[in-house]
Structures are given as structure tokens and as C-alpha cells.
Design a protein around this nucleic acid. Structure first.
Length: 558
RNA sequence: UGGGGCGUAGCCAAGUGGUAAGGCAACGGGUUUUGAUCCCGUGAAUCGCAGGUUCGAAUCCUGCCGCCCCAGCCA
């Protein structure tokens, strides 16, 4: 951290604890429940948990918070591990599960009963809800609240042994049914669930609740700072209550921060799985989703995600961050590392009428305009070329400095050409441009020093590689789709457009998942699922900034 | 109408009694064989509102307003 940066409020607390000698080492944990895929909101938590430990020489546990079997699965465990690694973080040998502590948790529950601060309730779920009261009215004590320690011990043991059906009994903390904090109205500690567990198998038929298991797991692992999101703030008194009652060796401290919400996206696990199950998107790693796996498949580099959450900051204020902020981070890192290539997304044929029909020249092209280390490559240039349909306009405004009838434009790394004739089909669509090239203007070696205002990209027809390119846009047309009653109503019908593109030949050899820049268009990467050697499929990661498009849009608005 | 949290520019965010950093976005200009990048510059904040304390308040006090979270045997 440089001197000009200020520490967020959590880092202030943590660094103070180090300086005051309260702790010699910082220990944190990232505790996802393996019941879904990680998303951009988790990136924030991961970077905070792992980041603050790493920068202070501390440690971080990756703990799978698996206290609710039936919703959790090893598939999600693997996806989570994969995502955290990909983001650039390492938990070493500190991969744990809440279920690793089920034995100790069970013993501690007995201790609570013996202390008289926990009891077995035999009300039904509906009755418990009625007894709980409301936000403005206190709850009432359960008729089973005053069972003897012996009876509670016996009942709890029999719960453990599987003597009762699901829901028949419930172990509860004995706190205060009149507390204004709903979480303190005798919260559940253990419930009966006759289902196997993703990690513990069929050993248990009673499972601990989050509030009970989480704080104690923190204590067992020697977590010094247990960082979580704001909605757990009013669980903190309960978190502390369990620690007070059981006095574990280590005393973790819970600190809450606000979630990171991204505009035009949804991060509720429930809604995310609806999108997947309804087929609105193809899978959990659909490139339009804000899941980590989706963003990876989309081609977002992990460094961009890290930079993004750093810019967003850690506070307690609700935030809804503009999509552009993320995209800027993606462009920032890709701009430096992505090799440049040429590709035409919507091809329009150009015939150079004065260029020899059988001639092919190899044009040298820089792989990165600002970094010679990327080297150069050769592009075949010939009589027939593809250019972008958007780069030609028949009735062009004065400020349009691409191709227009009678106008000139430079072909990137090639020659200056002039549009002599526009060929149309029966419907009046422009299907071909007949142009002439100026032999004196060959890139780099031309004898002519004349300049033209525009430069456009192209691909030689006879050498082009066909490819499918997927153009992604935001999944929703509403900035905060999570706040809309039915998100189906605000889906963007144009979130995916598929085009048949023509690529420069070198792209056929491009291997791996790293992104390249298609000059003047954006950053693209091979799709990790559908790409094949004989049928390339590229995803558009993000467009380049486009001030022309902005001008056009502004003009339309007038 | 209970409890908890939060209100500084379009979006983030510093600032904790001495006269409002920074980033993103926007706008203008320069460079450019990517309308990209890069560079330079500009505008934009009655610090949620109203009172009060003080020589001085975004910072302290009081009252109000707005937004978010909590009534799972979910996490």
C-alpha cells in the first residue's frame, strides 16, 4: 500500500490491532456456503479476506460453510476452489469445512445445555413462528423452555441418535424472547435433518445452525477478524453470546462491510439459479453472468477483477457500481497484455480494381503499438478484402472519416484506397465496393507521405479464417434488476448476438484462453466450451472505448 | 409503529473542529496508420434537511427526512 492511499475502516482496525500488540498475526477466513457459484460480490470478500492477511503476513482459511445438507454439494465445492485459485489466492493447507467441527460443536451444545442456556423445544415450526412475535411485539416463551437439564440432555442425545423425525424437536439457545433483536429470541442451534451431508456422509442426522457454527468455527481456527457483509450486523450480539457462553481459547471479532452491487446485474443466488434453470442463460458460466466462472469464460482477467474491487473500496454504505467501472479495469489490463490482431465481424467485400489478381503481398504488422517486445507478424494482402460494414457509409456526415463514395481511407498496415463504385443488390443493399489502391502508400515503405484521416481494418478474402463470434451485452436493461418485482420483464433481448466473422490467418494458431485485441473492435478470447480447431468460437470480452459511437448516439438524441 | 446500519458530485470514495483529496464517468484540447492508448486541461458538491454550540462545523449537540437489513428448523 502506497503512502497516498488511505486504509479502509477494516484495515484501520486490523493494523491498529497489530500495532497495539493485540494480535501478532492476522488470521482471516473466506467462508462460502457450497450451494451455488461465486459471483462478483464474493470477489470483494475474497480480495479483502485474503488480501489483508497476505499484506500483513497472516493466514487465510478457505472454509466451506456446509451446515445445511441438501442444499450443498461437492460440485459447488470444486467450483469455489477453482474460482478462488483463479482469482489469484492460495489457502495453502487451510482448506476446512464447518463440518470438520461437528464433533466439537456437538460437545459444546451439550455444554450449553448443562449451563442451562440451551433447551430442547418441541413446538412445531409454525408454532415457533407464532411464539416468536413480530418486529414490534415481543415473543412468548415456549412451554418447553423450562425443561430440566437432565431432560434436555436426554432429548438432545436422542435427537443425535436419530430417534426423532425431522422437525420433531429443536435445540434452542435460551436468551430472551422479548429482545428487540429478533436474532436473540431463542435462536435455533441444532435441527434434525435425516439426510446425508456432502462432506460428513451419513454420520449425522442433526445439524448446527449458521449462527452457532460460524463463530465457533472462527474460534477453533484462531480467526482474529471475521469479516462479513452488513446483513449479519444484527447477528453479532448472538455471535458474541456464543463466545461468551463457551469461552473458547481464541476470541474472533466480527466486522461487517457493505456488499458490492454491480449495475445491470443480479447476484442473488436464487435468481442466478433461476436464470440457469430456465435457460435464459446457458449455464452458471455463461459469459453474461456476473459469476466468477462466467467472467472467466467471458475473458475478464483476474487482475482486472482485483483492481475493480480495490477501486470500489470497503465501506458500510450501500453501493451500486456502474458497469463502466468494471469495463475500464478490464480494458486497463488487457490493453497492456493483449496482442493485436485483425478481424472483420460484419464483412463487406472490397475489390481493388487496380491490384493484380494473382498477387499477394505480406504486410508487416506490429503485435502491440506501444510494446515492441510483442514483435510483428505478416498479413497477406490481396485484391479482394473484407472490411467492416460499419466502416462504409454511402451518405456519410462530414465528420465520418472512414470509407465513403469517392473518399479515401488507409487500410491498417496496408495501402491507402479510394472508393470508386458502390455495388448493390436488387434490394439496394450495398454488397461490394470497387476501389483503387495507391501503390505509393504501402505501409512503412511508401514513397508518398500523404495522410488520410481514417484508418480501417481488413482481412484478405482468400486467406481469411471463418469464425463464430459472440457479442455480449448487459443481461438486463434496468440498472438495478434485483429491485424489480419480476426480473424477466427487464431482460435485455439483445444480450447476445452471434456473427460469422472473418479472421486474419494467424488467429487460427492462437492457443489458450488469453484475450487478444481485434483492432478497433475490442478484446476477444476463445470460448472455453464451444471453440474447436475447425470451428473457432470467440467471445467478445469488452469493446474498445468508442468515441464515434458516442457521437452518433448523441446525434440521435438531438 | 421494535432493533440495527447508512446518507460527501452521475457512480465509487478520502476527510474525525481550521475552511471539501483521488478514481470512474462527462466535457474540451494535443499526439496517433486502432475515432483505441497516451498526454494536457475543464466543469461539476447548498457535505440528506433544519436548528444549536464555536472565532470557525462535513466533522460536536438536538430534532427531522430518506434508503437498506431483521419476524428460516437458510447462510
Amino acid at each position: 500500500m502506497s503512502d497516498t492511499e488511505t486504509r479502509d475502516f477494516i484495515r484501520k482496525i486490523i493494523y491498529d490491532d497489530l500495532e497495539s500488540g493485540k494480535h501478532d498475526e492476522i488470521v482471516t477466513r473466506f467462508p462460502p456456503e457450497p450451494n451455488g457459484y461465486l459471483h462478483v460480490g464474493h470477489v470483494m470478500a475474497i480480495c479483502l479476506d485474503f488480501g489483508v492477511a497476505a499484506e500483513t503476513g497472516g493466514r487465510t482459511y478457505l472454509r466451506l460453510d456446509d451446515t445445511n445438507p441438501g442444499k450443498e454439494s461437492p460440485e459447488f465445492v470444486e467450483a469455489i476452489k477453482n474460482d478462488v485459485h483463479w482469482l489469484g489466492f492460495d489457502w495453502g493447507d487451510r482448506l476446512t469445512h464447518a463440518s470438520d467441527y461437528f464433533d466439537r460443536l456437538y460437545e459444546s451444545a451439550i455444554e450449553l445445555i448443562e449451563k442451562g442456556v440451551a433447551y430442547v423445544d418441541s413446538l412445531s415450526a409454525d408454532e415457533i413462528r407464532e411464539y416468536r412475535g413480530t418486529l414490534t411485539e415481543p415473543g412468548r416463551n415456549s412451554p418447553y423452555r423450562d425443561r430440566s437439564v437432565e431432560e434436555n440432555l436426554d432429548l438432545f442425545r436422542r435427537m443425535y441418535e436419530g430417534e426423532f423425525a425431522d422437525g420433531e424437536h429443536l435445540l434452542r439457545a435460551r436468551i430472551d424472547m422479548a429482545s428487540p433483536n429478533m436474532n436473540m429470541r431463542d435462536p435455533a442451534i441444532y435441527r434434525i435433518r435425516h439426510i446425508p451431508h456432502q462432506n460428513a456422509g451419513d454420520k449425522w442426522c442433526i445439524y448446527p445452525m449458521y449462527d452457532y457454527a460460524h463463530g465457533l468455527s472462527d474460534a477453533y481456527e484462531g480467526i482474529t477478524h471475521s469479516l462479513c457483509t452488513l446483513e449479519f450486523e444484527d447477528h453479532r450480539p448472538l455471535y458474541d453470546w456464543f463466545l461468551d457462553q463457551l469461552q473458547p481459547e481464541h476470541r474472533p471479532r466480527q466486522i461487517e462491510f457493505s456488499r458490492l452491487n454491480l449495475a445491470y446485474t443480479i447476484t442473488s443466488k436464487r435468481k442466478l439459479s433461476m436464470l440457469v434453470e430456465e435457460g435464459v442463460v446457458s449455464a452458471w458460466d455463461d459469459p453474461r453472468l456476473p459469476t466468477i466462472s462466467g467472467m472467466r469464460r467471458r475473458g475478464y482477467p483476474p487482475a482486472a477483477l482485483r483492481a475493480f474491487v480495490k477501486r470500489a473500496g470497503v465501506t458500510k454504505k450501500d453501493k451500486l457500481i456502474e458497469l463502466g467501472a468494471l469495463e475500464t479495469c478490464v480494458r486497463d489490463v488487457l490493453g497492456d497484455i493483449a496482442p493485436r490482431r485483425m478481424a472483420v465481424l460484419r464483412p463487406l467485400k472490397v475489390v481493388l480494381t487496380n491490384y493484380p489478381a494473382d498477387q499477394v503481398e505480406m504486410m508487416e504488422a506490429m503485435n502491440h503499438p506501444a510494446n515492441p517486445d510483442f514483435g510483428t507478424r505478416e498479413l497477406p494482402f490481396s485484391r479482394e478484402l473484407w472490411i467492416e460494414q460499419d466502416d462504409f457509409m454511402e451518405d456519410a456526415p462530414r465528420k465520418f472519416f472512414r470509407l465513403k463514395p469517392g473518399g479515401e481511407v488507409r487500410l491498417r498496415f496496408g495501402y491507402i484506397i479510394r472508393c470508386d463504385e458502390v455495388v448493390k443488390d436488387d434490394q439496394g443493399n450495398v454488397v461490394e465496393l470497387r476501389c483503387s489502391y495507391d501503390p505509393d502508400t504501402r505501409s512503412g515503405t511508401g514513397t508518398s507521405d500523404r495522410k488520410v484521416k481514417g484508418t480501417i481494418h481488413w482481412v484478405s478474402c482468400g486467406h481469411a479464417v471463418d469464425a463464430t463470434v459472440r457479442l455480449y451485452d448487459r443481461l438486463f436493461i434496468e440498472a438495478n434488476p434485483g429491485a424489480v418485482e419480476d426480473f424477466h420483464e427487464v431482460l435485455n433481448p439483445n444480450s447476445l448476438e452471434v456473427v460469422s466473422a472473418r479472421l486474419e490467418p494467424s488467429l487460427a494458431e492462437l492457443a489458450g484462453a488469453d484475450a487478444v485485441q481485434f483492432e478497433r473492435l475490442g478484446y476477444f478470447c476463445r470460448d472455453s466450451e464451444d471453440d474447436r480447431d475447425d470451428a473457432p468460437v470467440f467471445n467478445r470480452v469488452v469493446t474498445l472505448r468508442d468515441s464515434w459511437a458516442k457521437l452518433e448516439k448523441a446525434a440521435l438524441g438531438n
